[in-house]
Design a protein around this nucleic acid. Structure first.
Ligand SMILES: [Zn+2]
Ligand SMILES: [Zn+2]
Ligand SMILES: [Zn+2]
Ligand SMILES: [Zn+2]
Lengths: 163, 163
DNA sequence: TCAAAATACGTTATAATGTAACATATTTGA
DNA sequence: TCAAATATGTTACATTATAACGTATTTTGA
């Protein structure tokens, strides 16, 4: 009926997402919920075609527009982010786990991509955003949306490398 | 012989690029010089396949790997940057115009993309980089490379919009 | 100088990512 | 209940990028 079922933790986050959508007057349909679930269950950023494979376990013959439309919706609702350098998607921890029940609108975030283990960490650092706005204001540029992605090594991978 | 010839200003920058390469022990070959010239003459970020079309004016039958290899070289030399959100390339003003004759190695930069006119401005703002490093250090993440791209309106387009 | 090694380029084929366009189904609201 | 809006299915295609292998050129050192 509602397709695949996910781990409990994921279902909790999906329920959070559903509430956020309802609060915006939008609908987290079964399909969108399923795609979001697939994103959340992945330990790492997932590509659109990996999601498509996941979807096909349930809905044979699903085609790219199906997954891209769901992703567009989830991006607009601020439930996921796209990592541009990887052409891949991650759940928004801010919206789905945070105590910020008011969240769910697109927000500025920063992503730390570990080239060792592939993990991506989401930051929501005001200092970075301020520095960006400061630097752009005095040349008259108005920032509407920002992409900040850093590649490097997480603490665990750095320790493993120097050991 | 050396393919297309470019505007004087471009040739000057190409000569700068050639000096930077020589200083690194690498070679700005005719092909690479031509691709860099095409990037520099474009008023805006250029896609790889637009560059390929440009190349074909001179070398009929050129294929994608030709242009991608040249782009890879130019990226490694720090002579151009890739704008991830646009899958397109721009010359590095820092390396090619700057008084920084020591430049030419990849450096952290920030890009302001105007959605009105398509112009891209390169910043080299230490405050942004510091904010990023500060925010990541205390969670043990080591930044190796950063991508910072902001979309919005440049001063001219903002004025035109509010007029 | 000349051959071996390294570097750069040519060529073909294909992978990976993303959309346009139009048909059908479902939901919403008067 | 029926029209409008929203969501999904389906086909075909556009765009971006790379793998693999062969040839040409340049560099290096004997
Ligand atoms: Zn977020
Ligand atoms: Zn790691
Ligand atoms: Zn630069
Ligand atoms: Zn503008």
């Amino acid at each position: 009926m509602a397709g695949t079922s996910f781990a409990e933790k994921t279902e909790t986050r999906l329920d959070n997402a559903e509430r956020l959508c309802a609060a915006h007057g939008s609908r987290l349909t079964d399909l969108r919920r399923q795609v979001l679930g697939l994103v959340l269950e992945a330990a790492r950023p997932v590509g659109a075609y990996d999601l498509l494979d996941g979807l096909r376990a349930d809905k044979k013959g699903a085609a790219p527009p199906t997954v891209y439309r769901a992703l567009d919706f989830l991006l607009e609702e601020g439930l996921i982010h796209k990592i541009e350098r990887l052409s891949a998607f991650v759940g928004c921890t801010h919206a789905l786990d945070g105590s910020h029940t008011e969240a769910g609108h697109p927000h500025a975030a920063q992503f730390l991509i570990c080239t060792g283990c592939g993990q991506v960490t989401e930051l929501d650092d005001h200092g970075i955003l301020h520095a960006l706005v400061d630097a752009t204001r005095h040349i008259g540029f108005t920032v509407r949306h920002s992409t900040v992605e850093a590649e490097g090594l997480c603490a665990a991978c750095r320790d493993a490398a120097t050991a």
